[in-house]
Write a protein that binds this DNA or RNA. Sequence first.
DNA 1: CGGTATCCTATAAGATACTG
DNA 2: CAGTATCTTATAGGATACCG
Lengths: 148, 148
Amino acid sequence: MDAPTGVREHCPVAATLDLVGSRSSLLLMREAALGTRRFADFAVRTGLSEPMTARRLAELVDAGLLARADYREPGQRVRQEYRLTSSGVDFLPVITALRQWGDAHADVPGGRPLRVDHAGCGAEVVAEVRCTAGHAVPPAEAVVTRLR
Amino acid sequence: MDAPTGVREHCPVAATLDLVGSRSSLLLMREAALGTRRFADFAVRTGLSEPMTARRLAELVDAGLLARADYREPGQRVRQEYRLTSSGVDFLPVITALRQWGDAHADVPGGRPLRVDHAGCGAEVVAEVRCTAGHAVPPAEAVVTRLR
DNA sequence: CGGTATCCTATAAGATACTG
DNA sequence: CAGTATCTTATAGGATACCG
């Protein structure tokens, strides 16, 4: 995760994977996307060990996707929390797309454990490939240019 | 990638990561998304070693994202190719979302090496979080339900 | 509660050499 | 061209114990 081992890949996908590409990081980002904020909840809900949870959360903070802060519920003592930064919010399409593919194509024992719906509207939330002009872009209409 | 090591995670995100969650698999899916079809091109363009390229391509075929076939260019001998299946095409939002986050937030030495544009329209291709009713869904409007 | 320290195993991934 | 075989190293990640 820190430095790529092989040939240096000058690609935004590879760069993203170098920062947040491990299973543990992505599971933690999933949890953050679902609203989890506290250390113990991250560990239990991802099934990660505490040392791994601590290490990856620290990396995600370093990488700017999460921010750590103190907070105090009324009448309680001070606790820690991890919240999505704006960069972390920008990561939600990745998590949404992974969830969507899993729902459609992976065999999740016991059926679908998660739903994400649009507030008010009630329709399911998905990741769509579009152009910035707003058109849906099917694969055949995507033109790839390799620069350099 | 084969069997999850820790607590069994009943989640579509985790299930997806168990099938295609390694850096090498995701780089190969990136290449497939960019139109790469031949073994040697996959290896060179991802920077992966040949043994790793062979192993992961075989896994992606097993997982149903790629299909292997013979093909023959006019006047050439028979060659192999790997093509996206419909399940593989459904994976494109993941790759698009990873690329998009990298373009916005990762430091790719030498600038942006890749563009994906909408044919004809010319506008850039991105992954958007929407509901199936067609509304854009900002994070604040996503309602998460954990079932079971 | 929110971690850290230490040690261990499994796997990801590369290097090199070789084959049909 | 499209791989396979073998070996090695680096990293992911868990288990257990402990700390402020």
